Amino acid sequence: MTGFVQVLLSGLVDGCVCALIALGMSIVYSISRIINLAQGGFVVLAALTAVSRQQHLQLAPLLSSRSLAPDTIAHCPKSVCSTRFGGWMTPPSRR
């Protein structure tokens, strides 16, 4: 019975990840009317980085994926994010 529950939960998690990727792609397309194929590459890069961190640091899968978010935000150059994304990273007083 535990094997069935594990397969069921694994399928639900995989389905939710695919749904989030599809939601992100549809939001980008609906706003810009451009199909952004690079988004799939970033998803693969994040997945491979999480797996390598998990194996290298001996972390639980949830901890290794949660540690990616601050790195992703920190490595986004301020000049690129502030000009490319409509200034959402600049404070309201400077807009």
Rank of each mutant, 00 (worst) to 15 (best):
L48I: 07
A69Q: 02
P70N: 02
L9S: 08
G40L: 12
L9H: 12
M1D: 12
L68E: 00
G86P: 03
A22D: 07
I35C: 01
I73G: 07
L57G: 00
G87V: 04
R33C: 05
D71C: 02
L20Q: 07
V7A: 15
L48H: 11
Q54N: 00
A19I: 09
R94F: 13
S30Q: 15
Q6L: 10
I35G: 05
L63P: 05
Q39E: 07
I27D: 10
I21W: 08
M25G: 02
A38W: 08
A46G: 11
G15F: 12
R84D: 04
C76T: 01
P92A: 12
P77D: 01
V5D: 12
G15Y: 03
G3K: 02
F42V: 10
R53L: 05
Q39W: 00
L9T: 02
G40E: 01
F42Y: 14
L63G: 00
T72L: 13
A60S: 05
I31K: 10
Q54Y: 02
Q6D: 06
A47S: 11
M1N: 10
S30V: 00
I21T: 06
F42M: 11
V44N: 05
D14P: 00
R94H: 14
F4G: 03
C76L: 14
A46E: 00
L8P: 05
S30T: 15
T2C: 02
P92Q: 03
M25F: 08
G41A: 10
F85K: 00
A47F: 02
I35K: 10
V13E: 01
V5I: 14
L23D: 13
I35R: 07
A46F: 01
I27H: 14
R84I: 07
A19L: 15
S30E: 15
K78Y: 14
V5A: 14
T2N: 07
R95K: 15
M89G: 08
P70C: 05
Q39F: 06
L57C: 09
L23E: 13
A50Y: 02
S79A: 10
A38M: 15
P77L: 01
S79W: 04
S82P: 06
S52A: 10
V17K: 08
Q39D: 03
L59T: 00
S93H: 13
S65Q: 05
P61N: 08
M25E: 04
Y29R: 15
Q6F: 11
S67Y: 08
L48R: 10
S65G: 12
L68S: 00
A22C: 13
F4K: 14
L23P: 04
R94M: 12
F85Q: 04
G11D: 08
H75M: 06
L9Y: 11
S67W: 02
D14G: 14
I35Q: 10
H56N: 12
P61D: 03
R95P: 10
Q58W: 01
C18F: 04
S10D: 10
P91W: 00
H75C: 06
L59A: 07
H56K: 12
F85N: 04
C16V: 15
R95Y: 11
T90I: 11
G41S: 05
S64L: 08
I27A: 14
C16S: 15
